[in-house]
Amino acid sequence: MLRIQDLPKDKYLLPGHTACPGCPEALGLRYLGMALGKDIVLVVPASCSSILQGTMPGSSLAMRVVNVPFASAAAVASGIANIKELVGGNVVPVVWAGDGATADIGFAGLSGSAERNDDLIYVCVDNEAYMNTGIQRSSLTPYGAWTTTTIKGKSEDKKELPLIMLLHKIPYVATASIAFPIDFISKLRKALNIRGFKYIHLHAPCPTGWRFDPSKTVEVARLAVESGAWILFEAEGGRVRLTPPSNTYLDKSRRKPLKEYLSIQGRFRSLRDEDVKVFEKLVDSTWELIIKFT
């Protein structure tokens, strides 16, 4: 079992980065550096993570970083993965992409690279909307959420991307949350030792887009897991295993009320009681779906 005190003290996200206060991507990048260290070659499509690096010739990330066009991240990393043995050196290609770059515009490239089983780690940092352009809905925005392009709340459910990736028959799929860094880091380290395409879906509550106080990022992320709205699992060989603490929330009675998670966020402010019921049904059906793969 990994312990916080065993983690490296090296800083991979440097002071002076230009992320918003309370940014979950900034947290995630710190954990990523702690997990994988200096061998990372980070491939970043258009996203908040392109911005938080700051202006050249400086950079807030103490790792090799390639910024790439919105839809191209998986394919660029695929090119690096396919040549890394030939060029030698320590190279771990890691894609660090938002939900839009992953589930929407970059999905074909992601699917292609996964099907080819390229030896790389793909992290989808899911803040559930196009935050960098100013909070527009994506296919991973949840039901009922306000965005600037769904002012009455999104009427569709969130796409079940981790399972879609599971069905690509890749060797490793996991979900994670920025509220559970040890879990995230452990999953990254496990992925590092598996050859082939590894997909990790990181839940990343965004104070700016979700409309909550920047001091509450971790709290909101934790509530998402504790209320069952976000489920932590990992899958090797196509078999899903719920990971702590989500394994305890299989029993619905142990979960915190969904309303607690929703009411802390401004984006769900206009949700009526019947909308919350719909939301709950969708969460239940996601659990049922995931359980089928355990």
């Binding site: 390639v66 191209s72 690096i80 396919n82 292609g112």
Partner: peptide, 26 residues
């Protein structure tokens, strides 16, 4: 050579780019 059979032309050039970034002739 390695041959990467991609799913689109956009990815063909992106894969070529990724490999070329690491000092490979593509």
């Amino acid at each position: 050579s390695r041959f990467v059979r991609v799913e689109s032309e956009f990815s063909a050039l992106a894969v070529a780019y990724g490999a070329a970034l690491c000092n490979a002739r593509v």
